[in-house]
């Protein structure tokens, strides 16, 4: 479905070329839930940007359903680290924008948006403007805004980072449910190893910059997993321990470098 072949990406920072990602080879199957974890600034977001067609690789290529991604990829829904809410639209207006683009009528839009606004726990805030919401609430609006138009692939960049632990678990459960029901392909970037193992069928660990994939680990947990009671599961603990041992090196180097 999504295939990275020898992908590298270079930026210019302070006039100096800077290699953000190198030699990325990755194949994501249709309907797969892949989580990506790694130290900050290792090019995780760059991978998502290239998938969405917002950035072009300097070397190698990215394919989506067998076709090279050359321009904006409208098949994917992308929740970036930034909220990207339209400040002049209410919560409801923001959630409905993709439906407006698709030409849905007012009643249908209201029906659809209400479902997802309730799902992310923002019922009663429909008429609020983004400036009137907290950071965590804005994240949830972004999530609803992306889910509401049902894109076949979801790219999520630390979607639950700003949320408190309980809400995070609830939304993780919701996301798994949506994934099971719809069979979407999901790439989920996180900095939380628990979350990466709890959600992913596979977990990809990125090395420090220039980022590349260090390890990909399969998580043999059932699709119908219970995110609330995973921490004592044997498979969860084994995968977690294995991943942590390779992830730790990246962080040790990072902290050591400071």
């Amino acid at each position: 479905m999504i295939k990275f072949t020898n992908v590298s990406k270079e930026f210019v920072r302070d006039g100096q070329p800077f290699l953000a990602a190198r030699d990325i080879n990755l194949h994501i199957k249709q309907g797969e839930f892949l989580t990506v974890i790694g130290p900050s600034g290792c090019g995780k977001s760059t991978v998502l940007n290239m998938c969405a067609g917002l950035m072009k690789p300097n070397g190698g290529y990215v394919e989506y359903k067998g076709k090279k991604v050359k321009e904006i990829n409208t098949k994917v829904g992308y929740m970036t680290q930034k909220d990207n809410l339209l400040p002049w639209r209410t919560v409801q207006g923001n959630v409905e924008i993709a439906l407006e683009i698709r030409g849905l009528g007012k009643e249908e839009r209201e029906k659809e948006s209400a479902v997802y606004i309730e799902m992310v726990g923002l019922k009663g805030f429909e008429k609020h403007y983004p400036a009137e919401l907290s950071g965590g609430m804005r994240r949830r609006v972004s999530l609803a805004k992306m889910l509401v138009y049902n894109p076949e692939t979801l790219l999520l960049d630390e979607p639950f980072g700003a949320l408190d632990a309980q809400l995070r678990l609830i939304l993780q459960k919701k996301l798994l449910e949506i994934w099971k029901e719809t069979g979407k392909t999901i790439i989920f970037v996180t900095h939380d190893l628990d979350e990466a193992v709890a959600l992913g069928q596979r977990v990809a660990i990125f090395s420090r910059s220039p980022g590349t994939i260090k390890v990909i680990e399969k998580v043999n947990l059932p699709i119908h997993r219970d995110v609330f009671n995973l921490r004592n599961n044997e498979e969860f603990m084994n995968v977690h321990a294995r991943l942590w041992s390779s992830l730790r090196d990246e962080f040790v180097e990072e902290v050591g470098a400071i």
């Binding site: 969405a52 917002l54 904006i72 409208t74 994917v76 992308y78 683009i101 698709r102 138009y149």
Partner: peptide, 8 residues
């Protein structure tokens, strides 16, 4: 970018 991804 965000609205382009939605197919606008």
């Amino acid at each position: 970018d965000d609205i382009r991804l939605m197919g606008a």
